[in-house]
Design a protein around this nucleic acid. Structure first.
Lengths: 341, 341
DNA sequence: CATTAGCACTCAAATAGGGAGAGTGCTAAC
DNA sequence: GTTAGCACTCTCCCTATTTGAGTGCTAATG
């Protein structure tokens, strides 16, 4: 069986109608509403063909057709037209997101909020992951008997502090010395640029405090490795409840349960190699609980490097074209906002 | 009408049965299961009385009785026996919560998790609020042209850092000077102990950088005020879905919606003056959406001062006695754990 | 030969009609 | 004061029955 132009039109009409109404679509509706210039009977024949080809399915005889997963895939890949975003929308986002927010976490959280508001689906945004960092500053400050604060400043502006135990006999001078030596030796280097010889020479300089040094170095390593964990911010988790296909509790529950597990969501959002927007429909998501959902994700960048992901989760009967535009736009807005930070 | 002993027994039996089964309780059940030594007919008379007194209600004629809000209140205040916690339970909590966790936020999060697991309801725990803090250290570190990191260490061990803009002409020496002057003048003081004269003398010493100083001081103030915002950690939000009274979507939805709004939850948890455990039943919660829920809260302390709250949210048909024991115990466990930090 | 009108057929969802069962309130007897 | 007995009331559940949307097939049509 071959896909001709009329079949495409019929398929598109069915998908659009089903996306809009969530009701199985009949031949009559298609013929009338999407004026293809043919009779319902003809449409019926086409529909039978499309079903045979795997693009449509019937919930039961005597119901209309609904798109299959393959049908949505074909739609997204071949039929869908991009829907341009309203300029006032863009302006609104730019004003609020790009220009006003200074803290990274707030920015991510706000992005997630806007994303769910604009799409009416559930949004999820991963905080930036700065791997492969360059150390800019390292400082050890005495805190109290036996304790010190270590401050680590990375090149990307990320600052971390750690409260740590230190030998009690250390005085202010030693703190300064240790800070200075570490700072001098390690500043400006990524983890890969550390060499055993370098570490050894530090050890030699600070031989009296090798245990503390060990501790300090491992903390620094940890920070440089970017193991500052990524968080997920979610918005509109309850928007799924508005979807008619999830009006029974048993159907929503697994999804809400999923959304409660940050680890799983993080895993799902982990950046794929692919550029641009990724659409995963139904079982294309590896997660069992997402088999009736579609996930549209995109990655955002800083200085050309992919450092995070944002995504929208909705039913497979999702408004793909609209959501894709929003996701695309918010990705660029977020990238832009991060550039300014 | 007077409450005699038999009425109490009947009321208690009805409440216990309803809590256990979620089904309206009939006279027959009471007479048989809770052997009061009287016939169903007698129980029926007592039930009619209790209904007249406002402790019971009937969903419709020919259904059994269910406790009214007033009924629960009477039960909690007068009838309920405390249920002792299993010692193995206590041991488990102590081992995991009190002795193993070092970071405050992790501790709170874990508390919330345990709380929901132990109760099978939704738990919410507010992070500690340390008002009235003493400054221990203040340090300004150069970061890059025009930027510096300010480190603020409070007496309670809380460390904060802030990236801030500074005049570009400042050199390392000036940073050290500013740090030293601030540190010297403000160390060991609470916000209340700042005096205008003190601030003025600082201004005099640093007259060339009064704008920067203004900025710094306001940040420090902010930290001392303890305006590091309190967070809420929640556990088992979806546990309500297990409750038969919430098996229809329309009934759960407002509650889930509520739980999504952290501000509202924070507000609900704000410590009440009252010591010990607080039980708010149905509309005793001010929040509209909680009219079919009960909230059991308690406050935890550090050094005698109330600094946070933890709570359990469930249907009004909640297992009050069990939950109260758990809440009491976890409050003390949390207080103990915080003492060790 | 593609298209279409016509028609019998199918199936889900809505509607209506009974019981069955649980529980009550009242009355009269104990 | 307590209880047995009984009529009465509702909800819940089961089972037709109907309705209507939509199909697939066939035969007629341009």
């Amino acid at each position: 069986m071959k896909m001709d132009e009329r079949k495409q039109k019929v398929l598109q009409a069915i998908i659009l109608d089903y996306i809009a109404t969530a009701d199985p679509v009949g031949s009559r509706t298609i013929a009338k509403k999407y004026n293809l210039g043919v009779s319902p009977a003809t449409v019926r024949n086409e529909m039978a063909d499309l079903e045979e080809m795997g693009f449509l399915e019937q919930p039961h005889t005597s119901a209309g057709r609904i798109p299959s997963q393959l049908g949505y895939r074909y739609y997204v890949d071949c039929l869908m037209k991009k829907e341009p975003l309203k300029t006032e929308m863009k302006k609104y986002v730019r004003n609020n997101l790009v220009d006003r927010i200074r803290e990274t976490e707030d920015l991510i959280q706000y992005t997630s909020k806007i994303l769910s508001q604009m799409t009416s689906y559930t949004s999820m945004v991963l905080t930036p992951f700065y791997g492969n960092n360059v150390l800019r500053h390292i400082k050890l400050l005495p805190f109290e008997e036996g304790k010190a604060v270590m401050i680590i400043v990375l090149d990307n502006g990320h600052v971390e502090h750690r409260l740590m135990e230190v030998p009690e006999y250390l005085g202010e001078d030693e703190f300064a010395t240790i800070s200075a030596i570490l700072d001098e030796n390690l500043r400006g280097l990524t983890l890969e640029q550390w060499r055993p010889s370098l570490v050894q020479s530090i050890h030699k300089e600070l031989k009296h405090n090798s245990e503390l040094l060990q501790d300090l170095l491992s903390h620094i390593e940890h920070s440089l490795e970017g193991e500052q964990e990524q968080k997920v911010f979610m918005g509109g988790a309850l928007n799924i409840l508005d979807q008619p296909e999830f009006k029974q509790l048993e159907r929503v529950r697994p999804i809400l349960e999923l959304l409660e597990h940050e680890e799983i969501i993080k895993d799902v959002l982990v950046p794929v190699s692919q550029e641009g927007v990724t659409v995963r429909i139904g079982t294309e998501n590896k997660i069992e609980g997402m088999k009736d959902c579609s996930l549209i994700t995109a990655t955002y960048r800083v200085e050309g490097r992919v450092i995070g992901t944002l995504g929208v989760l909705g039913p497979t009967r999702m408004e793909y074209s609209r959501v894709i535009s929003v996701v695309e736009f918010l990705t660029s807005a977020l990238t832009e906002a991060l550039k300014k930070m």
